[in-house]
């Protein structure tokens, strides 16, 4: 198996994760980063592997999916590392305001259970810099979203590459 085949996925996934996670650079990111990374991975793979054209939808979807998953894993890792170092993140910072707004509603037992869970995550992050529940939640949501956006990028990339050639 050609190991170079997966290099574009790793490079583009890593690049997308940096652009969507690292503070300051993050402000330039938007929903087009992951699809653009999938497109770039597919295009670079053509150059590396000399694949016959036209590209079919299957490799386009697989490349998009893998780029999305790699980007999600890297971005989750970066976020966990940044949280571990700073003992703070957006979730911890905005939780008091959210709790105040929630307390203004009469949600009864449901609110207590929800806030108990959120406060546990927040206190774990503040004291240890790490919360297992938070880590699972962000990794899971990143994988779902980035995979979908990666597949979309792969399919659009396939259309553009096939049309150009």
């Amino acid at each position: 198996m050609n190991s170079n085949k997966y290099l574009p996925i790793l490079v583009c996934g890593f690049g997308a994760a940096v652009l969507t996670t690292v503070p300051y650079i993050k402000s330039f990111s938007c929903c087009l980063i992951i699809p653009a990374a999938s497109f770039a991975a597919l295009y670079l793979n053509l150059k590396v592997d000399n694949i016959n054209l036209p590209i079919t939808i299957k490799p386009a979807v697989v490349y998009g999916l893998l780029t999305g998953v790699v980007a999600a894993l890297f971005s989750s890792t970066f976020e966990i590392l940044i949280t571990f170092i700073t003992h703070n993140n957006d979730f911890v910072a905005t939780l008091p305001q959210t709790e105040a707004a929630m307390r203004s509603l009469d949600l009864g037992n449901l609110l207590d259970q929800t806030m108990g869970l959120l406060n546990k995550m927040s206190s774990d992050i503040v004291t240890n810099g790490f919360s297992l529940l938070y880590t699972i939640a962000i990794t899971f949501s990143n994988i779902i979203i980035d995979s979908v956006f990666g597949i979309i990028g792969g399919i659009i990339g396939m259309v553009v590459i096939n049309k150009r050639t």
Binding site: T20, S27, S29, C30, I33, T94, I138, I145
Partner: peptide, 22 residues
């Protein structure tokens, strides 16, 4: 209305992967 405030932190985090949310 504040009826969906309970979903705010979850949805905000969910969409943070695809937007800077400034």
């Amino acid at each position: 209305s504040n009826s969906t405030i309970i979903l705010y932190p979850v949805l905000h985090k969910f969409y943070s992967g695809v937007c800077h949310q400034l």
